[in-house]
């Protein structure tokens, strides 16, 4: 899932201070799990803004709201009339949600209420780790299920650099060396010999380097268009 982290209230205040009606809009899927931007956190941020406004002597109306997802219209469409009553929407969804909602709010700006950190997992309650970089061409079968693109500080493809120290990355003692983990895991799986092959330079065009990406499922698009046509024809008969 997508892991987010809270922005400092000072930064949020700088964004919102010149607006009169502000909606802090939470998203109750990924960013709620990581305690960054669900409805509960949206409520907290809203009250922090209200407190700050009071301290600064600013007249502001700040409310909060939450929906299941900001990345699919069916979840926020039912509350759009409410959303459009505000001068500013501070979305605490991930960046996907902020972009997506912003395209649909007309003259009302949508600002980011949190930082979108990475694709990760819940290692332990309160501990979230990055495990995938969304590069668009998965090679986890070749690296023991451990991604060197997301988890090696240098995205190395052919083994560790010279900086591995006691199994840790040269960047920090708090970061595991991905290649140390890969080697140990592949030993356990009995597939270490797979690492002997030199992996040639990657084609990064499936990653962000190919420009913004889109996945289109033709069969689903065809079905949707068919249904739309049917509905239109049925409407015509009336």
């Amino acid at each position: 899932m997508i892991i987010g982290s809270q922005k400092p209230i000072e930064e949020i205040w700088e964004m919102v201070k010149d607006f009169r009606k502000v909606l802090v809009f939470g998203c109750n899927t990924c960013v709620a799990v990581c305690h960054a931007g669900g409805e509960k956190e949206a409520e907290t941020i809203a009250s922090l803004i209200r407190m700050r406004a009071q301290q600064e002597g600013k007249e502001m109306e700040v409310n909060h709201l939450g929906v299941m997802r900001h990345c699919e219209p069916e979840y926020f469409d039912p509350v759009m009339d409410e959303v459009k009553k505000y001068d500013l929407v501070l979305s605490t969804a991930c960046g996907v949600g902020v972009n997506f909602l912003s395209d649909r709010t007309g003259n009302i700006p949508v600002y980011p209420g949190i930082n979108t950190s990475f694709y990760g997992a819940v290692e332990a309650p309160g501990n979230f780790v990055e495990l995938c970089a969304g590069c668009g061409n998965c090679i986890l079968h070749m690296t023991g299920g451990i991604c060197p693109i997301a988890r090696c500080s240098k995205t190395l493809m052919n083994g560790p650099c010279g900086g591995t120290n006691n199994g840790k990355c040269e960047v920090s003692k708090d970061i595991d060396c991905a290649w140390f983990l890969i080697v140990e895991r592949m030993k356990q799986l009995g597939t270490l010999e797979k690492l002997s092959e030199v992996i040639p330079p990657r084609n990064w065009s499936t990653s962000r380097d190919g420009g913004p990406r889109r996945v289109s499922l033709e069969h689903i698009r065809a079905y949707e268009e068919q249904e739309a046509q049917k509905a239109a024809t049925a409407g015509g008969k009336k």
Partner: peptide
């Protein structure tokens, strides 16, 4: 491969720890 950019801020040096690294290819490549 090159030392990570975080190494550049050491001792009295400010360095460029916020630089973007490339690693389009690795040493073998």
């Amino acid at each position: 491969a090159g030392d990570h950019q975080s190494f550049s801020a050491a001792g009295r040096l400010k360095g460029h720890p916020g630089a973007k690294n490339v690693y389009d290819v690795d040493t073998c490549q």
